[in-house]
C-alpha cells in the first residue's frame, strides 16, 4: 500500500469539496473494496477522504411512502431491517447472501454500488484495459466467472461480471440514487448509474466527477407486489455470484401488472432484462410458460470460451424465481 494523506469529511458537501480540491483524493467508507485495491496498489489515492463520520450517518428512514437508505448503511442493517424484509424482500435476500457477516457489517450500500469488478486479471498484476492498459486478458483467457451478456468487443472492452448482490435487487425494485457533486445535488435512476466502461471512463458507473452517493431511494410498495433475489455460488456461502436474478412483480388477480428483472454476475454491469419484462407485463399468470421465458432471457447470451454454463444456470435460477413468486 502506498502512502496517502487522510482527512475526514463532516458532511457530503465537505467530501465533495475535499475531492475537488485534491488531485487523486478518494472516498473511504466501509473500505471493504477500497482497502484491498490499495493493498494491491491498483488504486493509489493521494488522500483518503473518510466519510464514515459524516452527517447524516447510517440509517433507513421512511420517505414519501418509500424508504431512504443513507449511503453509509451497512448491508447487515439492510439484511435485518424488518421493513426491508417485508416490502423489499429482494434487497433483504441480496444483503443476506452477500459476502460474509463481517463484510456485511463493514460494507456500505453506497460503496457496494460503486465497487470494482472481481476479475482476477483486474485484481492481479496484468495491465488490463480497465486499469488503463490495452487488452482485456479475460476475453481469451481464464473467463469461467465472466460475462455472458454485453461482452462483445464493440459493446464493452471489459468482459468481467458485476459482483454486487444488492445492485440487481435495487434495480428490480426501481431504486434511485441521490448524491452530491460539485454542481450540486443529483438524483438519478439506479439504472442510469451503471454504464459499460469506455476508454474515457474506465469504470462501471456514471457517478459525476468528484461526486458522492448520499442515499438510495426505494419507491413506495405497490399493491400486489413481491420480490426476491436468487444467487448461485460455487460453494454454499461466501462467494460472488456465478449468476443471480432479482425479480419483482405486481400481480392483480391473474394478471402480471408489472414485472422487473435484473441480473447480476453475468455482465460487466447489473442490468434489466427489459424484453422479458415486456413479455411478462400484462400477461396472465396462469398462461405463462416459464421455460419459454427462461429461454428468452438467455436468447442474447454470448458465452466466452469457458462460461457457457452460465446460460443454463441463469435459466434455472429464473424459472425458480418465477415459480416462487408466481406459483
Amino acid at each position: 500500500m502506498n502512502n496517502f494523506s487522510y482527512t475526514k469529511a463532516g458532511t457530503p458537501g465537505e467530501a465533495v469539496s475535499a475531492l475537488a480540491a485534491t488531485e487523486g483524493a478518494v472516498i473511504l467508507a466501509g473500505g471493504t473494496d477500497l482497502v484491498p485495491l490499495m493493498k494491491e496498489e491498483i488504486v493509489n489515492p493521494s488522500t483518503l477522504v473518510d466519510i464514515t463520520t459524516w452527517e447524516p450517518r447510517a440509517g433507513i428512514e421512511s420517505q414519501g411512502g418509500g424508504l431512504l437508505i443513507h449511503a453509509l448503511t451497512p448491508l447487515s442493517a439492510l439484511a435485518s431491517n424488518e421493513r426491508v424484509g417485508r416490502d423489499y424482500r429482494a434487497l433483504a435476500d441480496a444483503c443476506n447472501l452477500a459476502a460474509t457477516p463481517q463484510l456485511r457489517n463493514m460494507g456500505t450500500i453506497g460503496g457496494n454500488l460503486l465497487q470494482q469488478t472481481r476479475c482476477w486479471y483486474y485484481r492481479g498484476d496484468q495491465p488490463c484495459r480497465l486499469k488503463g492498459g490495452e487488452v482485456c486478458f479475460a476475453r481469451n483467457g481464464e473467463n469461467e466467472k465472466h460475462a455472458i451478456f454485453l461482452n462483445a468487443p464493440g459493446t464493452s472492452f471489459c468482459v468481467s461480471a458485476h459482483p454486487s448482490d444488492p445492485a440487481p435487487a435495487l434495480l428490480a425494485l426501481n431504486a434511485r440514487v441521490e448524491g452530491e457533486a460539485p454542481g450540486g445535488p443529483f438524483d438519478m435512476a439506479l439504472e442510469e448509474l451503471f454504464a459499460l466502461p469506455t476508454d474515457e471512463r474506465r469504470s462501471f458507473t456514471t457517478l459525476p466527477a468528484n461526486g458522492v452517493i448520499t442515499g438510495v431511494l426505494l419507491p413506495a410498495p405497490q399493491p400486489g407486489s413481491r420480490s426476491l433475489y436468487l444467487k448461485a455460488m460455487p460453494r454454499a456461502a461466501w462467494a460472488f455470484a456465478l449468476a443471480s436474478v432479482a425479480l419483482y412483480v405486481e400481480v392483480e388477480g391473474d394478471t402480471v401488472k408489472e414485472a422487473r428483472i435484473a441480473l447480476g454476475g453475468v455482465a460487466p454491469i447489473p442490468f434489466r432484462a427489459h424484453r422479458v419484462e415486456h413479455d411478462l407485463r400484462g400477461s396472465r399468470v396462469s398462461g405463462l410458460d416459464y421455460r419459454e421465458l427462461a429461454e428468452a432471457l438467455t436468447a442474447d447470451a454470448s458465452p466466452l470460451s469457458q462460461n457457457g454454463y452460465k446460460a443454463p444456470l441463469l435459466r434455472g435460477l429464473f424459472r425458480r424465481a418465477l415459480l416462487q413468486l408466481l406459483g
Binding site: L48, L103, N105, M106
Partner: peptide
C-alpha cells in the same frame, strides 16, 4: 461490539 475484519480496517479510522 461489532465483528469486523481488522485487515481491512485502517487504524486511523
Amino acid at each position: 461490539g461489532v465483528p469486523v475484519l481488522s485487515c481491512l480496517t485502517l487504524a486511523v479510522t
